[in-house]
């Protein structure tokens, strides 16, 4: 299990290559990449603030829960902070399990929890000023299914 919080870019392909392979009983690997999206057009950059210390602890707790619930062979979470450009990778999740359903479910669980329970805050900076991204009710509601 690895959790990395970093300002530096990461290489999604290199992180995925070999992830979960070689472990006994691994039959499925799921990987997810989150990208800075320009929803309204005119986004010049995104600034991601986080709470050093709590971020690592909160994500490690989520990852441990996922390992226990879906008997994962391995899990990897990388989340960036600092200044990012549109189209750049923000974060990734990878899960390795015996079967596909467990690998997908664990990855979705981690994504849902990262959205609403990991202490990150996104600010969008565009031509018309800067704005903090508001949390969505549907993201909070998504936790209910777990």
């Amino acid at each position: 299990m690895r959790v990395r919080i970093q300002s530096a870019p990461f290489d999604y392909g290199a992180e995925c290559a070999g992830f979960g392979l070689g472990g006994a009983g691994v039959g499925a690997v799921v990987t997810f990449l989150g990208v800075v999206r320009d929803d309204r057009g005119g986004l010049s950059r995104m600034e991601i603030e986080h709470y050093p210390g709590m971020t690592e602890k909160a994500i490690a707790a989520m990852a441990e829960e996922a390992v226990g619930r879906w008997s994962l062979a391995d899990v990897l979470v990388i989340h960036r902070h600092g200044t990012l450009q549109p189209g750049e990778p923000i974060m990734m999740v990878a899960t390795a399990a015996r079967h596909r359903k467990a690998a997908f479910a664990a990855a979705e669980f981690l994504m849902d929890y990262l959205k609403s329970r990991a202490p990150f805050w996104k600010k969008e900076i565009g031509a018309d000023g800067a704005e903090w991204v508001a949390a969505k009710d549907e993201d909070e509601d998504a936790l209910g299914r777990w």
Binding site: Y51, M91, L114, K115, S116, W121, K122, A135, E140
Partner: peptide, 10 residues
């Protein structure tokens, strides 16, 4: 103690 708005990770 830390105060902050609802989180927007992912």
């Amino acid at each position: 103690v830390a105060f902050f708005p609802p989180m927007t990770g992912g």
